[in-house]
Simulated assay, not measured.
Amino acid sequence: MAASMSVTFLDVGQGDATLVSADGHHVLIDGGQARDDAIVPLRRKGIQQLDLVVATHAHADHIGGLISVLEDKPVDTLWYNGDEHTTQTFEAFLDAALDSAARYVEPTRGRTKALGGLEVTALHPGGDTQGGHLHDRNIVVRVSQGACSAVITGDIETDGEHDILRSSIEVDADVLELGHHGSRTSTGQRWLEAVDPDYVVAQYSEGNHYGHPHGEVLERVERAGAEMLGTGAHGTIRMRCSGGEWQARTEAQGPVVAGDREAEAAPGAPAEEPPATEAEVGCIDLNEASPEALEQIVHIGSVRAEAIIDGRPWSSVSELDVIHGLGPARVGDIEEQGEACVR
């Protein structure tokens, strides 16, 4: 069975927070602005620790939510570019990083962290990158698991994109996050063509006063033929890939199929259907899910995932208490998490 990777773009308003999970490993890239932006979804998903946290740069809408994460969760490694900032949010982030047990790394282009079959590669900054703006040394990463790949950009702008392209490092990916929330300062034509994504995602707040995502960027995406998703229009976007095949689910619309334009709402447009419940958005069907998907459920490791598969079909989540080690308390945790379901 092909390995799978999930990429969840959390709806944190006008900010960035992306969770990548594969092979039982978890990577958080930015954390939104408010202290509970990232920690609440992590707790809801039952994620006990993080293998890697990437703080792309020092702006509050990217690192504010990482403060609680670093304070609350064991973090193996923290990637940050080393830039300093004068805000109280940055000072609190720095204190949390220093107080945590995370190994601190300032990655430069080509640095790779392997987590089972999941690979996280720094595309930016280069070792000689200079500039006076925090965006100039913003960390960009490519995450991949087998035939599945995504590029998460933070607030990289076109100068940084060109710098990456000049390096000839691999950038093609199935999923691309628009730089700087879809601003016209980012996602230039050359960059979009080089990544050549099937899906494009913008993280922004509906009605934000910046006008993100900007129209000219959306026009470039449309010409490129990629599916456009945005947290402002769709809420949290959960994407899962196995064997190079992607499935996307959104809070506002449920499943989205690549190439199905009727299933897609333009950013800023109201959803035609009412929002799905949390369980519907994150539903992992006990009767259909792969072992890798089942391991995203709290208290479910590889052995229990196989036990779930062996016990199919299931009529309800509560029946899991027949599996060794899953007593009523742990099954209660699974039900409270809201990821597992039986369709």
Rank of each mutant, 00 (worst) to 15 (best):
E71G: 15
G154Q: 09
Q88M: 06
I156F: 03
D159Y: 06
F93A: 11
G127V: 00
T129K: 08
C148T: 10
V75M: 13
R166M: 03
G82E: 10
V151W: 03
A92M: 10
Q130P: 00
R142P: 01
P107S: 12
V120E: 02
W79L: 11
A150S: 11
I156L: 11
A150T: 03
D128Q: 12
G160T: 01
R111Q: 13
L123A: 05
A114E: 12
S149H: 04
D159L: 08
F90Q: 07
E84C: 01
E170H: 08
C148R: 01
T77C: 09
Y80N: 13
H135R: 08
Q88P: 00
V69P: 12
H133W: 04
V105I: 13
T153Y: 02
L70T: 12
A150N: 06
E157T: 03
N138F: 00
I152F: 03
T87R: 14
S168L: 07
I169H: 04
G154W: 04
Q145C: 15
V69R: 07
L115C: 07
T158I: 08
E119L: 05
E170W: 01
V75W: 13
G160C: 03
G117I: 00
R109C: 07
E91G: 05
R142I: 00
P74L: 07
G117E: 08
A92I: 00
L115M: 10
D72R: 15
G160L: 03
Q130G: 09
E84P: 00
G127N: 04
D72C: 15
R142F: 00
A114R: 14
D155F: 02
L70V: 12
D155S: 11
S144M: 14
T153M: 04
D83I: 01
I156A: 06
D95M: 10
E71T: 15
D83L: 10
D95N: 12
T86I: 02
A122C: 14
S168N: 11
R166L: 05
L115A: 08
L115N: 05
R166P: 00
T158L: 06
D136K: 03
S168H: 10
R103N: 15
E106C: 15
E161H: 09
L78G: 12
A114K: 14
D155L: 02
G117A: 07
V141I: 08
C148D: 15
L94G: 00
S167F: 03
K73H: 13
A150L: 04
D128K: 14
H133P: 00
V75C: 13
I156R: 07
V143H: 08
T158M: 11
F93K: 13
A147M: 10
H124F: 02
G126K: 03
G116F: 06
S149L: 05
D72V: 14
E91D: 08
D95H: 09
V105E: 14
S100T: 12
L70C: 14
S100M: 12
R137H: 02
T121L: 01
G126W: 00
H133N: 09
S168I: 00
V143M: 10
D72F: 11
V69N: 09
L115S: 06
R103W: 04
K73P: 02
E91N: 07
V151C: 05
R111E: 13
A147K: 15
I164S: 01
E161C: 10
L118V: 02
S144N: 14
D136F: 01
G82L: 10
I169M: 04
Y80F: 13
Q145F: 04
G126D: 05
I169N: 01
Q145S: 14
T89R: 10
I164L: 01
E157S: 02
A92N: 14
T121K: 07
